[in-house]
Design a binder for these strands. Sequence first.
DNA 1: CGGCCCGCTTGACCGAAGTCAAGCATCCGC
DNA 2: GCGGATGCTTGACTTCGGTCAAGCGGGCCG
Lengths: 250, 250
Amino acid sequence: MGTSDGLCISQGDLAAIRATPMFCALPPRALDAVLAQSELQVRARRSTLFEQDEPATAFYLVLEGWTKLFRMTVGGDEAVVGVFSRGDCLAEAPCLAGGNYPVSGETVTEARLLAVPARRIIELNRSSPEIGLAMLASASLHLKRLVDQIEELKARTGPQRLADFLVGLAPVAQGPCTIALPYEKLLIAGRLGMKPESLSRAFQRLRAVGVRINQNTVAVGDVARLTEFAGRERLMAFKCPAFRAGCGSR
Amino acid sequence: MGTSDGLCISQGDLAAIRATPMFCALPPRALDAVLAQSELQVRARRSTLFEQDEPATAFYLVLEGWTKLFRMTVGGDEAVVGVFSRGDCLAEAPCLAGGNYPVSGETVTEARLLAVPARRIIELNRSSPEIGLAMLASASLHLKRLVDQIEELKARTGPQRLADFLVGLAPVAQGPCTIALPYEKLLIAGRLGMKPESLSRAFQRLRAVGVRINQNTVAVGDVARLTEFAGRERLMAFKCPAFRAGCGSR
DNA sequence: CGGCCCGCTTGACCGAAGTCAAGCATCCGC
DNA sequence: GCGGATGCTTGACTTCGGTCAAGCGGGCCG
C-alpha cells in the first residue's frame, strides 16, 4: 500500500474532490484544511482499506479505480454492499460518528485514494460546522443508494438488475453502444446479489433484448429497450410469450 | 393528525429522547433548544408522515407506537425499508442534508411522535456543531441497519429471517418465552421481505425448532435454539441502551 | 340470527436462482 | 510446447418463495 504526502494533488483530482457531495458545499478554506490533513494513497488491487468492526479512524475518497464494501456472511460468502469509483466517498459516517466500520473495504482494481483521518475532521467540525452537514449530505446519499439496493433485491429479477447495471454504465441514453465491464464478473455478480452462474444466465436472457456479450465487452442494441426491460414487472416473460420464443433461438 | 405544542413533554418521554443515539451526545442546552422548536404529535394509525421525493422539511422521533418507511415499486407492491418504534429516529439525514425524502413514512399503529423541523436544526448546527455529529451518528446507525438488511436478504432464508426477528423481540436470551407480535402479519411479512403466505409457511417451519403460533402470540420453546437456527449471533446494535420493548441483555 | 368482509392459512403450481459438476478458454511458469 | 492454475459458461437437479385460488375464522352490521 504505497503512500505519499497530501500536497501533490493534481488539478484534475482537485476538481473531482470539489465535485463530490461530501466536499462541494465546503468553503475553499475548509477544504484546504481537510486536504492538508489527508493523504494520497496509491494501492494495488485487492488491498484492504479497513475491516468490519474495526474502530473507524479514516474515510476514503476514490480518485481512480474501483473499490468495494462487503460483509462476510456466516456461510463464508461475501455480501457486497456497494462498489465505488471516482468521486465516491467511503465510510465517512462511522468515522465521524466515532463508531466502528460496519463493513469491510477493499480495492478491486489498482486505485488512487484520498485517505482522510477522522480525528482531524471532528476537530475541524468545531470551527466550521458546515463540514458536519456536508458529511450528512454524503451519508444521506449512501442511505438512498442502500434503499435502492433493497428495493431492487426485493422487486426485481436477476436479468432486470443486470439490465439496470448496464444502463448505468452506458454512455448514451438510447440507441446502440458497447460497454466495457469495469471489473470482474465475479464481483458484478456479487454487486447484483447473485452467483456467477446466475450472472451468466442473466446475460443469456438479455440476448432477447438485444444484448451480446463477448469476454468483458458488451454490445447493446438499444439502450432505451434495455432501460424499459429493467423497469418492467417481473411477470413479463410469462405475460408476453414473444420473449420466450426469442430466448429459445441460439 | 392531532398536534400540540412542544412544551408538554413527559418525564418518561424526555428520558427516551435523551437516550437516542441522535440526542444522547447533545449538551442539555442544545437539546432544550431543539425541543423548543419541535412539536409533539399524536397520530392515528396509517397516517402519512411524508412521501417519497417530497422535499424533506422535518424529521421524526418515535416516542410511542410503530412507524414504517417504505417505497412503492414499479409493480405497485410496497418494499418496506424499515419498521421503527420508541427511540428510533426517521429521516434525519435527508432533512439535514437538505434533500428530498428517499422513502415514504407512515404510522403503523396509533403513535406519539416528536416532529423536528429541519430548518431550525440547520441553524442550530451553526452555534453547536456537535449537533451535526450527533445526526451523523444516527445516520450511521441507519446505514448499519440497512446493510444488515441487505446481508439478511442475500444470505438467509425466510424462516431464518423470521427466527431472527422473533429473537429480537424475545425478552430473554435463552429458555422459553412468549411474544406478542407488535403489528400485523402483513407488515411483518413486508419487513422480512416476503409475502404473507410465505410468512405463514415460515411459521410452520419454525415449529420444528419449538415455535408455536396462535393468533398474534408466539410461544418459543427455547430462544437459544431459535437464535442458533437464525444462523448467527446478532451483535446487538450499539443503540444507546434503555428501551426497545424487551430487548434485554445479550 | 345471518350475512359479509377481512386477515390469515393451505394447497397446487411454477418460475427464479442456488448447488454441483463438468466443460472450456486464457494466462502463466516451467 | 505442456500442465495447471483461474475464471467463465453450461447443464441437470433442487429448493425457495411468489402466484392463484380456495377455505376458514372472527368481528361487525343490518
